[in-house]
């Protein structure tokens, strides 16, 4: 008997024995959007996340006031000014264990890209973001988004991303529609998402 791979591929070739016509993909949908920073802010807020907009100069003060004296996970490469002194920082170096992450009050990160049309933040485990688990176990996520990182539309955002990096698209706090098909926020992922948009 042939191995499964050989047999499945043979079945496919035989199933396509009618030689279906080559497909031309019509791409008349919008490739660029008009989504502005304000739209991004509005759509993030629609998911019941909290949104702040600040000029670059006020960022550090806002981080300090939002985080207070909590115990916050810090990816290894957060910009030093973000590490405000009032906070008890839990740097991910050496890598934090599961229990330490689960016991933290929250996490502060930047992002790779954001999408105005859908109010989405994308993390790619790159600079200022750290490993995927850092933004998963703490119940509070504070994310800093720079204006230049906001793409108007989904196609523009995907074009800026490297697909072989581990990616996490985040649109609001964790939620479910499993009870009577109505959305309620707060299940396994962070139950509170707070976003700072920095106008640069």
């Amino acid at each position: 008997m042939a191995d499964a791979r050989t047999e499945v591929l043979a079945r496919i070739r035989s199933a396509l024995g009618d030689r279906p016509a080559p497909v031309v993909v019509p791409r008349a949908y919008h490739h660029t959007g008009t989504g502005s920073l304000d739209l991004f802010a509005e759509r993030v807020a629609d998911y019941r996340a909290t949104v702040h907009q600040v000029p670059a100069d006020d960022l550090v003060a806002l981080i300090a006031s939002l985080l207070g004296t909590r115990r916050i996970v810090a990816p290894v490469d957060l910009p030093p000014p973000w590490l405000v002194p009032s906070v008890t920082w839990l740097p991910d170096s050496p890598p934090l264990g599961i229990d330490a992450l689960d016991g933290a009050d929250g996490v502060l990160t930047g992002c790779a890209v954001a999408i105005a049309d859908t109010g989405t933040i994308v993390l790619d485990a790159g600079t200022t973001q750290g490993r995927r688990v850092l933004t998963l176990l703490p119940d509070y996520h504070l994310c800093v988004v720079f204006a230049s990182q906001v793409a108007a539309s989904v196609p523009e955002a995907l074009a800026r991303l490297d697909p072989v990096r581990p990616l996490t698209f985040i649109s609001g706090p964790s939620a479910t529609s499993d009870i009577e098909l109505n959305r309620v926020e707060g299940v396994h992922g962070p139950r509170t998402l707070e976003v700072i948009i920095v106008r640069d």
């Binding site: 949908y29 998911y47 995927r132 990616l167 698209f169």
Partner: peptide, 30 residues
């Protein structure tokens, strides 16, 4: 195309809360 079609068709959201993308194995992550 599909990241626009699927969430709006299924849960009627502009985007679902989480989408994960991974490629093989990433050392030190996952």
């Amino acid at each position: 195309v599909f990241l626009q079609l699927l969430p709006r068709s299924s849960t009627a959201e502009r985007m679902n809360p989480y989408t994960s993308v991974w490629t093989g194995v990433t050392p030190g992550d996952g």
